[in-house]
């Protein structure tokens, strides 16, 4: 039996800590509840007369706008507040593995929230004959989106020991990255910025990539976007924590 990798040790402790209080359960229930409302009532599932999960996936970026910052806010802010960051960063573990482990725990929690919405999938399958490939792509897109949100939150959490600040700043940052993919916002930029810049703004927006992936076509371009955004932001978290040692 070989010893588990350091990031696995860190991730499993972190993930277990979410369930030490009822808070995580409350979050999951609220998430599932909202997911149901969005899909069936607001999304007009019955009125549309189509058995699919499009309404759910269309609302998912907004749902995660609350869930992801709530999960990521404690990643580093809590360690700093408790003082356990001093123990965690002086254990013989590479910093990148600690940062990665914590991020993966948070991501695991969000993926769990997505898994908990599978009854919606079952329901539409029972009602009609949905395109399962599209639903799988939708879930993949939602998982990637939550990963980027959490990675943004991870960086922000590394800057503060105040979880409320971490939550608010993360939610705003995610909101902005989402917003700059909407045609209304893009049109506003196109009015006075050169085309290239407006396209660049659309290119960095989560929404652009999310929607293209959600449509059921997993393109390399989008996959690269999500993976590189997560890698860059998790690396930025490690750099931030290391930088705070020198500050």
């Amino acid at each position: 039996m070989s010893a588990p990798r350091p990031f696995v040790v860190v991730a499993s402790r972190e993930l277990r800590s979410y369930f030490a209080t009822p808070l995580a359960g409350v979050f999951l229930v609220v998430f599932i509840f909202l997911a149901g409302i969005f899909s069936f009532s607001l999304g007009g599932l019955y009125e549309r007369g189509q058995a699919d999960l499009r309404p759910f996936f269309q609302f998912a970026p907004w749902l995660f706008l609350f869930l992801a910052p709530a999960v990521s806010m404690r990643l580093w802010a809590e360690e700093r507040r408790l003082g356990t960051v001093e123990i965690l960063t002086t254990l013989p573990l590479p910093l990148w593995q600690v940062v990665l482990g914590k991020f993966l725990a948070a991501w695991g929690f969000c993926v769990l929230a997505l898994v908990a919405t599978v009854p919606l999938w079952v329901t539409v399958s029972w009602l009609g004959d949905p395109d399962h490939g599209a639903i799988i792509a939708g879930y993949a897109a939602a998982a990637m989106l939550s990963g980027v949100y959490l990675a943004i939150g991870s960086v922000i959490s590394a800057f503060t020991k105040n979880q409320v600040i971490a939550f608010v700043v993360t939610a705003v940052a995610c909101f902005l990255s989402l917003l700059c993919g909407y045609p209304v916002v893009l049109d506003f930029f196109k009015g006075w910025l050169p085309d290239g810049v407006a396209d660049a703004i659309a290119g960095v927006s989560i929404l652009t990539h999310y929607q293209s992936m959600m449509r059921g076509v997993i393109e390399l371009r989008d996959a690269i976007y999500f993976v590189s955004a997560i890698v860059a932001l998790v690396t930025a978290t490690a750099i931030t924590i290391d930088w705070r040692k020198a500050a």
């Binding site: 350091p6 040790v9 277990r16 800590s17 030490a20 408790l82 123990i87 254990l91 013989p92």
Partner: peptide, 20 residues
Amino acid sequence: PAYPDMTVREYLNFIAAARG
């Protein structure tokens, strides 16, 4: 400092695991 929601055994287990 220590993680308040862990039991003493869980916490020492974590430290041991982290130390290989």
